[in-house]
Each structure stands twice: as C-alpha cells, then as structure tokens.
C-alpha cells in the first residue's frame, strides 16, 4: 500500500502545508507574493502527480490552470500592482511570529484529528490528502485573520483556495474538478486585480483595512 506513488503524493501535499507556514511570517509584501507563487507551484506538482497516479487526464488541466494562473499570472500582476501603488517596500506588522506558528501548528493538529478518524474507511490516498488540504485551508484562514493589508488578505484567500483544489484533486474521480478550479480562478482574478485594489486605494488612500473599518455605520452617524 505504501508505494512510491503514495509517498510522493504525501510529500507534495505536506510541502503545501510547509509553504503555508512560510506565508504566515512574511512581513514584506513582495516576499509574501513570491512565497505564494511557490505555494501554487507546489500545488501544480501535487495535482499533476495525482493526475499521473490516478490516470486522470482532466487533472492535468487543473494542474495547468494552477501553473499558468496562480503560479505565474496572478503573482506577476500582484507584483505590478504593489509597485504601482508604491507599497512594495512596506513592512506589515505581523503579530508575534511565535504566536502565529503555535496557532498554525495547533490548526494542523486539529485538521489531522478531525479528518483521519472520520475517513477511516476511505481510500488512504484521499484521506491523507484531505487532512493536508484541511490544514492548508485553516492556515489560509489564520493568515486572513492576522493580516490587515488588502493584498495580504487576498493572498490568504488564494492560499486557502489552493487547499481546496488539493482536496478536489485528491478525491478520486471527482468530476467538475477542472470547472471548479476555473471558477475559483475567475472569482479571484476578476475581483481582486480588476476592481478592488485600485478603487479602494482611490477612495481610501490606503489599502490598509483599518482605514476602511472607520466607515462603519456606528461612526457615520
């Protein structure tokens, strides 16, 4: 059962969790974007490997989308935006690195504790993949909670979404995996890059979400 195919799938999925941890403590925006590109690259490899061992050609399409969109186009576009907004040198205050790491480790433990007993009867490959995927999703959530900057929030969301694509790829024979990853890529690419960052900047002179919070109804009266 524990053949090489399984081990490599395990290694790549684990690689995504490790990269998610790397994302947690990047203070500089350009570094954060680069690590996200790495995250997507590992996703491409993981999905590509799943396609190979499951003999599922449609997953190659998913891997291709991950490579072109998430590892190349979106990071390039984000780099350009960050430079045009003039915030590429900004250091974001990241709470305590130690605190975030501990919280992250706890979340990974939680993912494993939740997923493994529940999926005892499932195919071991899908099972481990799912546990890792849930860990990546939770780490993405953690990143979104700890950050203030709009760009970082978006990266948190995209890393979370990478986790979901990993889960969809691990579920053997799941149809619509391609459609789902396309739907997600369109969602973020369209909204994030086209619409939000510039408009928010234009109206708020900042992409720091704390500036936005000041416009709550309570304070507007």
């Amino acid at each position: 059962m524990h053949d090489l195919g399984f081990d490599i799938a395990h290694f790549l999925a684990g690689g995504m969790v490790v990269t998610s941890f790397l994302l947690l403590y990047q203070a500089r925006l350009s570094a954060l974007i680069n690590v996200f590109a790495l995250h997507s690259l590992v996703l491409t490899l993981a999905v590509g490997w799943q396609a190979f061992i499951q003999h599922a050609p449609h997953l190659y399409v998913t891997a291709g989308i991950a490579l072109v969109f998430k590892a190349l186009m979106i990071p390039t576009a984000l780099h350009r935006i960050v430079r045009r907004l003039g915030i590429h040198r900004t250091l974001e205050v990241v709470g305590g690195v130690g605190r975030d790491m501990l919280a992250g480790a706890a979340l990974v433990a939680l993912a494993i504790l939740v997923m493994l007993p529940v999926t005892a009867t499932a195919d071991p490959l899908a099972r481990e993949d799912l546990a890792f995927a849930l860990a990546v999703v939770l780490l993405g959530l953690l990143l979104m909670v700890t950050r203030q900057n709009a760009v970082s929030l978006v990266i948190g969301f995209m890393s979370l979404e990478n986790g979901l694509v990993l889960a969809a790829a691990g579920a053997r024979g799941m149809p619509l995996a391609v459609e789902i990853s396309v739907a997600f890529s369109v969602l973020i690419a369209l909204i994030v890059i086209g619409i939000f960052l510039f408009r928010i900047r234009e109206r708020f002179d900042s992409v720091d979400m704390q500036a936005m919070d000041a416009f709550r109804e309570e304070r507007r009266r």
């Binding site: 799912l130 999703v137 959530l141 979901l164 969809a168 969602l187």
Partner: peptide, 16 residues
C-alpha cells in the same frame, strides 16, 4: 468567498 470555500470543502466530503 469564505462561505463558498467552506461549502466546497463540504461538497468534496459528500462526494467522498
């Protein structure tokens, strides 16, 4: 999109 992400995870679990 957070909600939608959680729902997708649930959908995958139902498939499994």
């Amino acid at each position: 999109s957070l909600g939608i992400a959680l729902a997708l995870f649930g959908t995958i679990l139902v498939y499994l």
